[in-house]
Design a binder for these strands. Sequence first.
DNA 1: TTGTACGCGTTATCAA
DNA 2: TTGATAACGCGTACAA
Lengths: 325, 325
Amino acid sequence: MRPKLEDVAKLANVSKTTVSRVLNNRGYLSQETIDRVYQAVKELNYQPNVVARQLYKKQTRIIGLLFPTIANPFFGELSAELEKRLYNEGFKVLIGNSMNDPKKEAHYLNQLLTKQVDGLIVGTHNRGIKEYNYSHLPVVAIDRNMNQDIPVIESDNYNGGVLATTHLINQGAKKIIHTNGPIELESPTKRRRLAYEDTIKAYGLTPITVTVDFNIPYIEKKKIFTQIFKDHPDLDAIFASNDVDAALIMQVALEQGLHVPKDLLLVGYDGTQIIQNILPGLTTVVQPLEQIAQTAITVLKQRLNNEPTDTEYILPVTLHKGITG
Amino acid sequence: MRPKLEDVAKLANVSKTTVSRVLNNRGYLSQETIDRVYQAVKELNYQPNVVARQLYKKQTRIIGLLFPTIANPFFGELSAELEKRLYNEGFKVLIGNSMNDPKKEAHYLNQLLTKQVDGLIVGTHNRGIKEYNYSHLPVVAIDRNMNQDIPVIESDNYNGGVLATTHLINQGAKKIIHTNGPIELESPTKRRRLAYEDTIKAYGLTPITVTVDFNIPYIEKKKIFTQIFKDHPDLDAIFASNDVDAALIMQVALEQGLHVPKDLLLVGYDGTQIIQNILPGLTTVVQPLEQIAQTAITVLKQRLNNEPTDTEYILPVTLHKGITG
DNA sequence: TTGTACGCGTTATCAA
DNA sequence: TTGATAACGCGTACAA
């Protein structure tokens, strides 16, 4: 049996209250009782029960993170960054991978609404999950529009799209294809697409956007990319909406006997550590990951304290020029 | 104010007990009360308070995962796999990245011992954290020896080392360098090193193992790898102890003007999805990630139920032959 | 400086 | 078929 406050109290010959006071050092206490209590705590190897404390305090000091999947480097690195910072603020982190399955996401949400977490950071791609609406749980979203009540943290997606597209055009590309997620999803990511299309048109070219579901197996993605090369033998550049896709495209191009950048210019998006180090040659739009994480946490804490927040935080991106485009 | 059981009870004109019964459908209930209760629940948008339930039930249905960092693809993919399976079993997942910082790891551990989680899956690389010893928390370890009480799940590290080394030797390599973590850490990973050294010696060659801390920034790793090429201009193969390191080495070799596999043979370890798809050419020892995840969960559940378990579970590896070695 | 008694929101026992 | 009541383990008014 796990010892509880009462057991410690008995052993130290004091009341529960006193033990509690000693452990949370509140109020006046004689050095003698303090010592006796700590002695008893050690003797019994007492560990306080957090759950009881959570119930009393009505807070868990746990923040939920809801992302498509941390197996993807962008969300893996983002989650690691969030965890690091939240840990320093005394929070723990509960992670849910929605796998872009609306059922799973709604289920997680329902679970987390039950006072299981104090707040939520969401970066999933589903829409129309009604649970978000009538919840009073503090929530911030990363790269996702939810509803008016929920602040969004995002990198400057539009500018990122402009940077990438302009860069490819400046390199002399004429037929540039863009890959992006399903258009139904009203996410800030769509601004990359919009920027791409606007820019392409501004230069008198024709936009071609190919839909690639974010959350399908790599092998499926590769099939889609292979098909792109079949359908557009004359294409000379691709602006991929994330680094992993860009890396996969690079691989597929290689398999197709295409040389990057000689036969194909390529620009990615994200600038994750891993891809930047494994494929430093990949030209890509770099998102400020640490800044995104920090902003999300700052804003969430404001929500936690019932302080007002903005509804949108747009953070600057930069273009990393490699050799692929 | 959040509605509680009592509020629902009042509105439905029944007792707390009845409401609880309806929601957990236990015992006999008239259809009429059932309807009335659900009506009230809906009207108040009642959400049960999990923490109160956790306190009573003395379990949280949360499993803690303690890894070096989920930013690394191996642990990212492993965590995702664990989360998926635990979710299906009705568990949630609390993630801690130790960053191989013993203080942070010990702190997490102390926190999690306080009934915050029902069980723990650990894959960190620190040693000598005493908290593990006098805890009665069910724990399983992945690729890490802790103490006799804690079962270890691991891939067949020794055989993996043999496979990789033998393969390189069969390809004609004479001077093969191996990278591995600090030797002080008594982890199963060390068996890769042992296998490498045994095999090398069996063929009359000289083992050279270079220490690379797992948890340093990629940029630092690259420096070490660059130094290897400087120190050993005549080396003709590297067996890296994980895929990311292998990928980094590949990149560094390129920078050094070395062609893989013409000038350098390279074998990695892990077989993560991302690396296998981005660099399918990388020859590597593939760990059975799903099987590792499933075994860890199965064993943890046995521990949770106080059933006996083995102390070691060794899962088979396979050699993926790419073009790098 | 210390102790008594109650509440946090649930579930289960026992009685009705 | 339902309700009163006592736990679960902790923290804090309030009293002493």
